[in-house]
């Protein structure tokens, strides 16, 4: 059942991004590194909490996907719209969501941004352009195209980006959306985080097309496959797609190849893949890649360790905050059905 190695299926970064934009400054890469560690540690802490029975429902982590989120956040403007899947902690944290409130939401506590009603699968913060993670595969994709349509109707220069898994490509509404978005030249970026499994099913078992970004070509859309674990490549690709969108050139489809290092959701038994397969992917994962880049640029290992220690404190105190936070008042069960 094991798939060939990630590297084998990903063209080199150079091939994917033909004209590289300015190289990111080391300062910026360091702040990306910090963000990536923060996301990783928040999610690992959440998995611990789930393991001790503190989290109900379905919680999907993006461990291994952080490159997509952090690269995107650096490439877009704070007011640009974003929608994503139930696997959406990383996008939200990368765009600046407060980790304390994020953890509260997953635990169903009152200080959560949605008062604990939405939980892990429905992360959002409209003040950061985060317009909602969605529990229904594919549902968030037309929403982003609609936000892009709104920007176009209003005549402002906001773009919208939407994240989805490769499994979503087999939903009909995706294809309806691609056609309209391209026909109407909407300022939207379709970012597919291809982690090569939809739940327990490897993509080879369900897709009629091996290189899935080619689906977009059927609609005449610009599409590209990149190493989604390389944050610099993600940054450059999203920045170029956003520039195209703002210039009225329409949508771009990005297939960011990645690998989910944790289970599909918390408590996934992972009977569908081997431990060796996961291990093999560790050397390509985004944190390892960025760390190597930074060390290669002469950044001291101590500095990275210090950043990690800072993040550790922040995450520990966020977890404590959330564990001690109050539950919502039961009266909240009946509110928010209609806007009053």
């Amino acid at each position: 059942m094991a798939e060939p190695s990630l590297k084998a299926s990903v063209p080199s970064a150079k091939a994917a991004v033909a004209e590289a934009t300015a190289v990111l400054a080391t300062e910026q890469l360091l702040s990306m590194y910090r963000k990536m560690v923060l996301i990783r540690r928040v999610e690992e802490s959440l998995l611990d909490l789930a393991g001790s029975g503190k989290i109900g429902g379905a919680m999907h982590t993006a461990i291994g996907h952080e490159g997509a989120a952090v690269g995107m956040a650096a490439a877009l403007r704070p007011q640009d719209y974003l929608t994503c899947t139930y696997r959406g902690h990383h996008h939200s944290l990368a765009r600046g969501m407060d980790p304390r409130r994020a953890i509260c939401e997953v635990l169903g506590k009152a200080p959560g941004f949605a008062k604990g009603k939405g939980g892990s699968m429905h992360f959002l913060d409209p003040s950061l352009g985060l317009m909602g993670a969605n529990g229904i595969v594919g549902a968030q994709v037309p929403h982003a195209a609609g936000m892009a349509l709104a920007a176009k109707i209003r005549g402002d220069d906001r773009v919208a980006i939407t994240f989805f898994g490769e499994g979503a490509l087999y939903q009909g509404l995706m294809h309806e959306t691609f056609n309209m978005a391209q026909k109407w030249k909407l300022p939207v970026i379709f970012y597919c985080e291809n982690n090569r499994y939809s739940e327990m099913t490897p993509i080879s078992r369900t897709s009629s097309v091996a290189e899935i970004h080619l689906f977009a070509r059927a609609y005449g859309m610009e599409s590209v496959q990149i190493d989604g674990n390389n944050v610099e490549v993600v940054y450059e690709t999203v920045a170029r797609a956003a520039a195209r969108a703002r210039a009225g050139e329409g949508p771009t489809f990005i297939e960011g190849v990645t690998y989910r290092l944790a289970g599909h959701m918390a408590n996934d038994l992972e009977t569908y893949r081997s431990a060796e397969e996961i291990d093999m992917q560790r050397s390509y994962e985004p944190l390892t890649q960025l760390q190597q880049t930074l060390l290669g640029r002469g950044v001291a290992a101590d500095l990275l360790a210090q950043l990690r220690a800072e993040v550790e404190q922040e995450v520990q105190s966020a977890v404590e905050f959330a564990l001690e936070a109050p539950w919502p008042d039961v009266a909240e069960a009946y509110t928010d059905v209609y806007k009053v």
Binding site: G56, G108, G116, K117, G118, G119, S120, M121
Partner: peptide, 9 residues
């Protein structure tokens, strides 16, 4: 209402 995540709710 639809069912919320938060346990007491």
């Amino acid at each position: 209402a639809s069912l919320p995540v938060s346990k007491p709710l």
